[in-house]
Each structure stands twice: as C-alpha cells, then as structure tokens.
Design a protein around this nucleic acid. Structure first.
Length: 435
RNA sequence: GGAGAGGUCGCCUAGUGGCCGAGGGCGCCGCACUGGAAAUGCGGUAUGGGGCAACCCAUCGAGGGUUCGAAUCCCUCCCUCUCCGCCA
C-alpha cells in the first residue's frame, strides 16, 4: 500500500492535493522527495565503491593464479585495499538503509490520491448516485390497524433461526449461531451469490484459506494499518481473515502477469473475522455488527486503463443481487474524506431495513488503482518482452451476508410472523420462513 | 509430530570458493533458408535500483555468518517431495 516514488518525482502536486482532500498531511510528500534524493545519492556512491571492490577481489584471484604468493606483499596490499573499501561501503549502506527505511515509512503514510471525479469533503459530501426500489415504511396504516415493522432480531428470535445466546455461550458475544431455516438461508445466499458471479458475470470461484501469514496480511495493508481489527493466532503467526480480499488478492503477490491473462476476476466465499474493538454500543444490536460473518467477495486484477470501467462493472455485479432479492437500496459515491486511505474511488451499497429504519451497508466496492498492487509487487506485461508495470486491483463485496439477512427478515416479515423468501432463494428454501 | 531428500534464469537441468548473473536442453521472440511449413542455422530471451548513455550495482527459497572473494562452506528459518506416525 503505497504511492509510487516515481509518481512523487513526476507529479508531486497531485499527491499533495490528494493528501489534503483526504485530510492527511501533505508535507510528507516533500520530505519523501528529499529522502529519495538522499537515498539515490548514497546508493550511487556505494555502487561505485562496490564495483571497485569487486575488481580488487578479481585482481587477487588473477594475481594468485599468475603465480603471486597468496601471503605475499602484492596480495596483501590488495587485501588491505579491499578491507578499506568495505568500511566505506558499510558506512554508505547505513545511510542508504536509513533513508530507504524512513522513505518507506513515509510513503506508507501518504494516502492514495482520489480520482478526479470523487467529491471533495467529509461524510456530508458523499453523494447518492442512484437508488432502486421503494423503501418500506417502518409504520403504516393497514386494514388491521397500525402495522409496525420489527427489527430483525425480534423476527429471528420468534422464528428461532438466529440464536445469539448460544453463540455467546460457545464463543462470545458477536458470534451468531444460525439454526434451522436460518442456517439454510445462509447457505442459500452464499450459493446464489456465487452462482450469479460465476455463471453470469464470468468470475472464477476460489475457496481460499481463512487464515493468512504475516506477509499476506502486510500485502493488503492489514498490517500495520488494521492490526487491531484482526484475530491473531500468535502461536503459529497466523491471522484470521477479516475479509476474503486478503487471501484472494495475495494469490498473485510477487507475480508478473502476461497481458493476455487480464483481467483476472475472482469471487470467493469466506467467513470473516473482525475484533471490532471499541465498537460496542451504537448500531450493534442483532447481527448488524458481529465478530464473525459471512461474505462473498469479488476481487479484480485489471489493466490500468480498464480499472475505472471495472469499478462500475463490479458495482453493477453487486447491485444485481439486491435487485433480484427485491431489496430497496441506494448507491453512494464516497467523498474524499469519507473513503479510506487506500482507495482512489469507492461506492457503498446500502440496503433499506424498515425494522431498524436505517440503510445498512452491505457492500463496499473500491478501486485501489496501483496503490495496493505496488506493495504486493503484482505486475503485468503490456507487450511481450516489455518492462513489467504495476497493475490495478479492485474489490467489492458481493455481498456481506449478515446484513442482507437482516434486510430480508425486516423487509419480508408478515403480520403473521412469517417471512417471505425472496424469489431467487425459493427453490432452496420454499416461499416462506415460518408461518 | 519423527526420519530422509531437495529448493538455481518460464520449464527441466549443469554448476562444491575467483574464469558464474550463472552453462546446456525445452519453450518463446526475431532473422536466414522455404512457394508455404517442418527441419536446420544465427541472434535474442529474469527482476529490481542507479545513470542522458556506455554502463554500474543487487538478487541462485529467506535471513545471518566465514572469506579479499560465496550459487558453492557454516548457522537459523520457510517451502516441496518420500517414508513412518496421527487424523476430519
């Protein structure tokens, strides 16, 4: 996760402005440029001395081969020369390492500049770019009097399909247990999402490990940025994945991909584990914010000139699912201050939940451009034989299960306590839950 | 978990202290030959950093060490394979 030093050299102004728009410190850019100069200077000098040392060593070999005594004065002098060079190289190496380390650290703190079409500002500057469906009212007058739509945890409890108490006993608060039709609903949703993405959107399904090593966690920026968010298995130096983005993006870490293989588009189901430290309280009731949830995630590797269009496409792929489920939703283009440090452009999909009277974020679709791929050294070759370039990565939820389940329960609830099953799931679940 | 073998340039492989950033074969890309192709011949074919360039530097799983000099010797770790044990 970092901005390229090349870009800083060539277009520092855009990076500076981007930092300001995201509310970060723009002076880091200038300090980084200074360090870059320092590093290159020392590196150049060290390389020159190293070349000389190499030549000296070769002369020792040649002299011995030509008959000089290995312990003789000629060889001894060359050795002394080599040792002296070594000391000077060592000193320069320290300068290089120090500058490089500081530079890397600085680069990690410079945010990815937002795309030009991203609105500048805080949360209030984010814009709803479109919406679909009619949000159901929380209360409405009906033939049998006033009807109030209940929150999903009440609906679920009555149907006996989500057992938070059992989950809490087994693991702790925030680890839901789904039972009966609730469990089947999870399975049906996962299946439905994966089927649409593989069969209709042409993505390749992968089923990755749900723990990752340190290198992978670092690759997608979970370390050091979001370390507190992850569950760690210290004994084996493994992390439980907070999203499939981590293992799936790392599939191509340190690879060079030939142009004819792009784009590469994956879809993966995984459970996701998040500590959500400090999040207890607001909007955490029911299954809206939990430590373990299920998600189908889409991850794309794209040619740089195609990533803009790919973001729109990915967003549409996620939207399709909500439409077919018949859930009213809206698409929000996140403003500079409201999106992450690492994204260039991001859409959030929010689904309407009439029971809690709120829009629930069920998907977040982001274009990282080259920011994420750079740290992982994921490159592509524009032409056969050409120099490799950093490619672009994107990802998006398609979709996050827990909140979709909440929305289905709240939107589909009937006065008799049953829940209407969305059409695409009926073949698997029947027309109603309960009732 | 125990014992053994091994990780070299896309693939296979040579290489036990200097002549090795690294040979050979395959693959791939040019060129020649051909009506076209096959076969054959010639040349090219890693990544990163620096330099206008010539070119220089680094990298032989990773990290340390020995040495004037390490793919080659030593140490630690990772991974793969085989056998044994265990097991959904």
């Amino acid at each position: 996760m970092s901005v390229g030093i090349q870009r800083l050299r060539e277009d520092a102004e855009t990076v500076r402005r981007g930092a300001i728009a995201k509310g970060e410190d723009p002076t880091l850019v200038d300090r980084a440029i200074a360090l870059d100069v320092e590093r290159r200077d020392a590196q150049g000098k060290a390389d020159a001395l190293r070349a000389e040392k190499k030549a000296t060593s070769e002369r020792i070999g040649a002299a011995i081969k030509a008959g000089a005594a290995p312990g003789g004065p000629e060889v001894a002098e060359l050795r002394a020369r080599s040792v002296e060079l070594d000391a000077r190289i060592g000193a320069l190496d320290v300068t290089v390492d120090t500058a490089a380390t500081e530079l890397d650290d600085l680069l990690l703190r410079i945010p990815n500049p937002p795309d030009p079409d991203v609105p500048v500002g805080g949360e209030e500057a984010s814009v709803i770019v479109r919406s679909w469906g009619d949000p159901l009212p929380h209360t409405e007058e009906g033939p049998g009097g006033v009807r109030i739509r209940r929150p999903h945890w009440e609906v679920a409890e009555e149907l006996g399909i989500i057992d938070l108490a059992a989950g809490a006993k087994i693991a702790g608060s925030g680890f839901p247990l789904y039972r009966g039709a609730g469990a089947a609903l999870q399975r049906a949703l996962i299946d439905f999402f994966l089927d649409v993405h593989t069969r209709e959107n042409g993505m390749t399904e992968v089923w990755p490990p749900v723990v990752v090593n340190t290198a992978s966690a670092r690759g997608t920026g979970q370390i050091p940025d979001k370390e507190d968010q992850m569950y760690v298995i210290t004994r084996d130096e493994l992390y439980l994945v907070p999203t499939a983005e981590v293992p799936v993006t790392n599939i191509h870490r340190d690879e060079i991909i030939e142009a004819d293989r792009l784009p590469i588009r994956y879809v993966a189901y995984t459970p996701c584990f998040r500590r959500e430290a400090g999040a207890a309280g607001a909007r955490t009731r029911g299954i809206l914010r939990v430590h373990q949830f299920d998600k189908v995630e889409m991850v794309c590797f794209e040619r740089p000139d195609a990533s803009g269009a790919a973001l729109e496409w990915l967003t549409a792929c996620a939207e399709t699912l909500l439409r077919r489920l018949g859930l009213a939703y809206r698409v929000k283009l996140m403003a500079t201050g409201d999106m992450g440090f690492t994204q260039a452009k991001k859409y959030d999909l929010e689904v309407w939940a009439p029971g809690v009277e709120d829009w629930l974020e069920v998907s977040s679709v982001s274009n990282f451009r080259d920011y994420q791929a750079r740290r992982m050294a994921i490159r592509w070759r524009p032409e056969p034989g050409a120099r490799p370039e950093i490619l672009h990565t994107l990802n998006g939820s398609g979709l996050a299960l827990a909140r979709v389940v909440a929305a289905i329960l709240e939107n589909g609830q009937q006065p008799d306590g049953s829940v209407v099953v969305p059409e695409p799931l009926r073949a698997r679940l029947g027309a109603r839950l309960g009732g």
